[in-house]
Amino acid sequence: MTKAAVDAYLAALPADQRQALQTLRALLGTLLPDHLEVMSYAMPGFRQPGPKGRMVAGYAAFARHLGLYPHSGNIIPQLTADCAGFKTSKSGVLFTPANPLPQALVERIIRLRQDEIATLGR
């Protein structure tokens, strides 16, 4: 799947969700400039370049919330204090257009995921 599939996913959302996820997408694009925009597990996200590149993070919209998912069950549990005020699961952090994720939290999630990927090797 390509960037066009991501554009189509976002275009189909209500305006408030679309704007919130476009903002998140832009931030992720800045943090992961050489990564590929893809659809994975029916959600947009960013994958490392190369044929064996790992997923770094995905994001999605649902009826009552949005989510950021670092494609690892090890990242969010490390950030309990940082995620105060947001509902979390082992695999992601949930937010709303009215209460978006702080940039510093997104940066920390991405940094931890990249560190984890580096330890896993390719």
Rank of each mutant, 00 (worst) to 15 (best):
P102S: 12
G29K: 08
P51W: 02
N74I: 00
Y9M: 06
E37W: 14
P77W: 07
A11S: 08
L105E: 00
A20Y: 08
N74E: 11
P70G: 04
Q17R: 12
G85C: 07
G29Q: 09
A8E: 15
Y59K: 03
L120W: 15
M55Q: 03
P100T: 04
S40I: 00
P77V: 03
S40W: 11
R18S: 12
L31Y: 10
A61C: 07
A11P: 02
G92R: 05
P77H: 13
V56R: 02
A12P: 02
R54W: 05
Q17I: 10
N99I: 07
R108Q: 14
L32P: 00
A20V: 05
I117F: 08
L101H: 12
A11E: 05
F62D: 03
L105D: 00
P100L: 06
I110L: 13
L68M: 14
L21H: 05
V93D: 00
I75E: 02
E107Q: 15
F86H: 09
A12W: 05
D115W: 08
T23W: 06
D34A: 15
D115M: 13
P49W: 11
Y9F: 07
L79F: 05
Y9K: 01
R54T: 08
R54F: 04
L10I: 08
L28H: 03
I75F: 04
M1N: 11
G29C: 09
A8M: 03
R18Y: 13
L13C: 05
G50A: 09
D34S: 14
E116W: 09
Q22I: 03
A60S: 13
L10R: 06
L31S: 12
Y41C: 00
S91H: 03
G67L: 14
A118Y: 07
Q48L: 11
N74P: 00
H35A: 15
E37R: 14
R47Q: 15
Q103W: 04
A63L: 11
P70S: 06
V56L: 05
Q114V: 01
I110K: 04
I117N: 06
F46M: 10
A12I: 00
L31D: 13
L21R: 04
G53C: 13
F86M: 02
G92L: 05
R25Y: 04
S89V: 05
T80H: 02
A63E: 14
A11C: 02
Y69K: 06
L32I: 04
I75R: 04
L101S: 11
A84S: 08
L120A: 01
V106T: 13
P100S: 06
E37Q: 15
L31R: 12
I109L: 10
L28P: 01
G29I: 08
I117V: 12
G50T: 05
F62S: 13
T96L: 09
Q103T: 15
T23D: 14
L31K: 10
V6P: 14
L24A: 01
P49R: 11
P51G: 15
M43C: 04
G29N: 07
E107F: 10
D115P: 09
A42N: 14
P33D: 09
M1L: 12
S40Q: 09
V56H: 03
P44R: 07
A42D: 11
L79Y: 05
L36G: 08
A98K: 14
L10F: 07
L31F: 12
Y41M: 09
G73E: 14
V56I: 13
